[in-house]
Design a protein around this nucleic acid. Sequence first.
DNA 1: TCCTGTTTTGTAATCGATTACATTTAAAAT
DNA 2: ATTTTAAATGTAATCGATTACAAAACAGGA
Lengths: 328, 328
Amino acid sequence: MANIQEVAKEAGVSVATVSRVMNGGAVTPKTKGKVEEVIKRLNYEPSMLGRNLRNSESRLLLVLIPTISNPYYSDIINGIENTVIRQGYNILLCETDSNPERENIYFDMVRKKMADGIISMDPTVNMEELKILAEDHPIIQCSEYSVESGIPFVTIDNEEAAYRAVSHLVNIGRTDIAMINSDVTFLYARQRQLGYQRALEEKGVPFDEGNVYYTNGPSFERGQQAMRKILTDHKDHSAVFAVSDLLAIGALKEAHQLGLRVPEDIAIAGFDKIAFSNMTNPALTTIAQPMYDMGTTSAQMLIDKINGRTVESTMMSHELIIRESTIG
Amino acid sequence: MANIQEVAKEAGVSVATVSRVMNGGAVTPKTKGKVEEVIKRLNYEPSMLGRNLRNSESRLLLVLIPTISNPYYSDIINGIENTVIRQGYNILLCETDSNPERENIYFDMVRKKMADGIISMDPTVNMEELKILAEDHPIIQCSEYSVESGIPFVTIDNEEAAYRAVSHLVNIGRTDIAMINSDVTFLYARQRQLGYQRALEEKGVPFDEGNVYYTNGPSFERGQQAMRKILTDHKDHSAVFAVSDLLAIGALKEAHQLGLRVPEDIAIAGFDKIAFSNMTNPALTTIAQPMYDMGTTSAQMLIDKINGRTVESTMMSHELIIRESTIG
DNA sequence: TCCTGTTTTGTAATCGATTACATTTAAAAT
DNA sequence: ATTTTAAATGTAATCGATTACAAAACAGGA
């Protein structure tokens, strides 16, 4: 592997000239041609390590997610990726597994200059640590956020979205609605519960804490468990609102397993519009978040922040997608 | 942000001594304590950029996948991640979108020393380019591979696995089996078709090319399309073998949509045992690959290769998981 | 005390690029 | 032809670590 010195020597010029040829500096067409010929002949590829050290940047951005197995993140990541690649950056997908140790490895990468910034989408992130890190390094929150942290964020109006989903259930005549929530330590969980509550109270249905079933994270299995609990409680719910599609799909599976028809016996609505929400039978009513745009927006915000520009938190729009699981 | 120079000056020692304190060299307990105090006080974090340049390594490994939205990869990636992190590496998840341009960006990262090696899981990878890259850089193929490339690989016996799945369908009395294959430019697709063929012929059912439905990639939508075609061809198939769970889940959805009962009217088997294969209704019969182990194995192979050790290609075991979609 | 051998510490080169500044070369103006 | 001005090129410092080698400090033995 040739380096810039060898190219310079072979072409009979200085390293500065080679560098200029590479980066579009002022060089005579003649020398440029000569150098380019040598570059091609020696198969020279400039080392990013040298350049990065000199420029004290890595052009690597971290994207923190709790797990890649939740398809919720895939479109957001797509948006991020397309945005940053166009500007000469790359992303490192960081799966924390909600493990503080793992998380710390990634924080360390930023501290040690191996990454230029972070987009955090991890609801389980250690906000204290993140806040401290944000004092010295560019960080953006996407989807899940904390206002008090002072770290810019991109999100949707969770409360309003949940309100709309639950209102829709009420409007099709299902007032007896159970809620499958995840963990109220997460802001989105609290916000969506508020929306659920508001929709019910507005229709004169008193809010009953007993109708909210909390799970330990938004996974398929937890959705199954919650649904089993709901059905064995024998409260005759005619609808279920789950705060995530994975939970809803789990609930759907369990309802079928226990011989119920969806939506005839029980309607189910999810949240997020992950790809799989359309693959179930019946297809799932859900809330669509502008995933891709949330990705591009947060990515651009991060790059702006890296470049010293000031950035503003953004609230994005959402949409209720009515499908088979709540029709009838 | 303090650097090693400032720490050295502040502690009244040389940079060499600071480096030794950081990396466990020989230092007097007294100096060690003094330096550590300064490190803590100045909040010093050694820059990886400097170290990496000096050591000409990045300790970053690339993992090439066509798309993160295919959950097939998540467990493999988990295995890779756990293995490499323990050895001081990190992975960069690279989504190529089957786009040669994107792919080239990642290849460039290796050429430019921003990554130390590659685990390729992308069936659409440009094998010519990969082969050339492998001459100068450590590369391992996982799951999808090419023997002729000479690049070490980790895989399962696709032909045998498909043979078992199809034999199972025959054994439950369904000899009239359609196959939903992806693209035969992929080795796994050809191998699984061979297994399908062998299972049929062994039971005296002649192979009929007309019963194989090719799709443009293993996605849910393609599975739906293929199933629609199968059912409108009116050949009265009593079973479908799909080469991937996503295809099978699409087929399942379409069968339901068209009013068929699974497995009573038509049995469906998939391949890969992705998490969602258990969330459908009915749950999907499928082939389990030792995903996590494939991840750890290929990761260790890559690290071995980086360290100049010789590595051998590995064939891993698989398992037929019989579930509701083929019972009855 | 002096010498030897070992351990600790420091000096300076190195990794591979970029870039400020100095110098040379070429073009334009007189 | 000479001076002025602009463009091209080169020299060397720099980014922040590691490490070979040199030098200094210290211990033990005579």
